[in-house]
């Protein structure tokens, strides 16, 4: 028992011995977040995407990312845009695109948004002549 206490006092004299378990835990958490998390640009507004069993991942990043929030606010490539300006903006972005063959639009809309508020957006995309459109979902079941 005495020997044990002697070692403990020796270790504590150096000061850092007691923090080693803390460092172990922190390192484990660090590795977890580094490996499991994905670092990506955050969206201008937080949305709760619809869940789906669909497994398809996009091969390329979308040329245009349209985010529609619960309050019907529309962001095109992180810029707030009024619904009636979406068509002209999409046409302009398509004209400026270097790869018009692969040009595609991704829509991130809140899962609780009703269909009526998405109809004008889809009509605007259709009028601008774009056909490759995808809706972003989250993997999982409701």
């Amino acid at each position: 028992m005495n020997i044990n206490q002697k070692f403990i006092t020796q270790r504590d004299r150096h000061g850092d011995g007691s923090v080693i378990p803390l460092i172990n835990v922190v390192f484990l958490m660090l590795i977890f977040f580094m490996v499991a998390g994905q670092i990506q640009r955050s969206d201008p507004i937080t949305i709760d995407p619809p869940t789906s069993i669909n497994e398809k991942r996009p091969n390329l990043d979308p040329d245009v990312l349209i985010i529609v929030g619960l309050g019907n606010e529309v962001y095109v490539n992180d810029q707030p845009v009024a619904m009636d300006e979406v068509e002209s903006m999409l046409s302009r972005l398509f004209d400026e695109s270097s790869k018009p063959d692969q040009f595609w639009v991704q829509i991130k809309a809140d899962g609780h948004l009703n269909i009526a508020s998405l109809r004008p957006l889809f009509s605007a995309i259709r009028r601008s002549g774009l056909t490759k459109v995808s809706v972003a979902t989250q993997l999982g079941q409701e």
């Binding site: 460092i23 922190v26 390192f27 958490m29 660090l30 977040f33 580094m34 499991a36 998390g37 994905q38 670092i39 990506q40 955050s42 995407p49 789906s52 669909n54 497994e55 398809k56 991942r57 996009p58 991704q106 889809f122 995309i125 259709r126 009028r127 002549g129 774009l130 056909t131 490759k132 459109v133 995808s134 809706v135 972003a136 979902t137 989250q138 993997l139 999982g140």
Partner: peptide, 28 residues
């Protein structure tokens, strides 16, 4: 340093598994 790294990764990591559902539109 490790705490700063941990904070950075905790705040910037995203765990949402994004997928896409294709909804091709007919040409106007």
């Amino acid at each position: 340093v490790v705490f700063i790294l941990l904070l950075f990764f905790m705040l910037s990591s995203s765990f949402v598994a994004w997928r896409t559902v294709d909804t091709p539109l007919a040409a106007p």
